[in-house]
Amino acid sequence: MNKYFDRYASVIFALIGMLFVVESRNIATSAYGSQVGPNMFPMGLGILLILLSIRLFFESWKASGGENKSAPLQHKRFLVILAATCLYAYFLEDIGYVIGTFLFLLVGFRVMGAESWWKSGLIALLFSGGVYYLYVDILQGTLPGFPSWIGF
């Protein structure tokens, strides 16, 4: 698995390097006539990245069979939390900080194995409300408040 990851990674890094090299040719050249324009540094680095990727590619062929880490991965748990995090971040400004954080934590606690709804709900409420109160009311920071359709 490790071996395959390295092989794919080397291709991806080489592509990233190429992207930077190609794109740095499109950068407008410096206005004040210096020979050292804004494109030189990224282009050099891009070439370096391609060379290193080629080296990694060959190293991954030489490496004899990747050692598989035997611990079973909890893919389902991870994907649910990842999805919840994405939704939470994406809708943060729409539903407001307190509601969003409360819902995210509630889902997170349950997915991670908390049995009691009551305890999870209480901790989630204390955390989301506490952070909002401390940050917005005491420290005068800005967080998305409650959505306007709620009425306050």
Binding site: I81, T85, A89, L92, Y97, F104, F109, S128, Y135, L143
Partner: peptide, 18 residues
């Protein structure tokens, strides 16, 4: 960990957004 992990995510989101 079941309480700690989601809270670290929430703190990360809060910190970056703040």
């Amino acid at each position: 960990a079941k309480y700690l992990i989601p809270m670290i995510i929430a703190i990360s989101i809060f910190g970056v957004y703040a």
